[in-house]
Design a protein around this nucleic acid. Structure first.
Lengths: 189, 189
DNA sequence: GTCTATAGACGGATAGAC
DNA sequence: GTCTATCCGTCTATAGAC
């Protein structure tokens, strides 16, 4: 059976994304050079520049989807009537995203400083910046008491950090999801 | 009144620490050059090398105290009989440390990747590495059920991240402390 | 689409004068 | 304790051949 479709034959681009994400998350964005990524793939640096405009561009290629997903949750939440059911649904969707993009999320956690200096330069102004505040507003209300706001933030932080911390261990994903969801509702009931 | 004591007159060393911590936390460890730190202080790079052996050494100079404090809590916890009272005391001490060293903690959070590649090189093996696992063992027991372990981790993560997130705002520290403590006990009762 | 070669800049660190 | 001057390594990015 011969290949006939329009699918790329080598798909170097996605291989670059995969390796870059691994290395960036593992040893950090700044400490990982394009030379290292190229070597790992058996190509040269110049080849990377055919697929991506810059080193930062590689990052954007796998973070954009992630942030779009978060934005979708925020937009959905804004359109809903505030209340306990909406809150639960926001957490459910949020946890799904974090679990699905755990490796991307781990990269972000490990490279907070690098991320922040990226968006300050570029026109993607608030792309990497406190979406979290918006979600806190959504959960605790913009004028809610401090306790509610701190607990909402804690729920979101706890969800993402525990997910990241237990991801990749022998832990069952569905068990983890249930436990995290319980934590989030306990903190914002 | 003339100075007579043994106190250093200029105390460049501590000024370096202060500026470095600020810049490292703000824009990242790798992105901050020694030239930049020196310029901000009105001295030259070479002057920094009189006070510190290397760039990493500056980091260690303000993280060592922090980690020693965490270790002290761990050691104390290990010597106590497991139970609810010990748990509460661990959280209380932990929150105190995090609140007191909020800026150092923020630096660590922002530069996770850089931190991890430091201790892998040096003889300070686990210095920056999962102390957190040890604390989870202390709180949930080494063989506790997954739910307890995840919740213990969540409590610790929540404490440190919310502390960092609300630190520097107009939030009252004692209010914050009480709220965080409540979260921690809610999650591990 | 991938290569070689290189430009161009900046980093950490050291030597040695003062 | 701070300076000037410099070494040497590495990095991102580009030009241009194949």
């Amino acid at each position: 059976m011969q290949r006939t479709g329009a699918a790329p034959r080598t798909d170097t681009r996605s291989r670059v994304q995969k390796v870059a994400l691994e290395l960036f998350a593992e040893q950090g964005y700044e400490k990982t050079s394009l030379r290292e990524i190229a070597e790992r793939l058996g190509v040269t640096k110049a080849a990377l520049y055919y697929h991506f405009r810059s080193k930062e561009d590689i990052v954007h290629s796998f973070t954009d989807d992630y942030f779009d997903a978060i934005d979708a949750v925020i937009d959905w939440g804004k359109a809903q009537p505030p209340g306990d059911a909406t809150r639960r649904e926001i957490f459910d969707r949020y946890i799904t995203i974090v679990l699905a993009g755990a490796e991307v999320f781990r990269f972000i956690e490990q490279n907070r400083a690098s991320m922040q200096s990226m968006d300050s330069v570029k026109e993607r102004f608030g792309r990497f910046r406190s979406r979290l505040d918006t979600m806190v507003d959504l959960i605790a209300g913009p004028d809610g008491p401090l306790r509610d706001r701190v607990r909402a933030a804690a729920a979101l932080f706890a969800a993402s950090t525990t997910c990241m911390h237990f991801w990749g261990t022998e832990t069952d994903v569905d068990d983890l999801r249930a436990i995290i969801f319980e934590i989030a509702t306990d903190l914002t009931s």
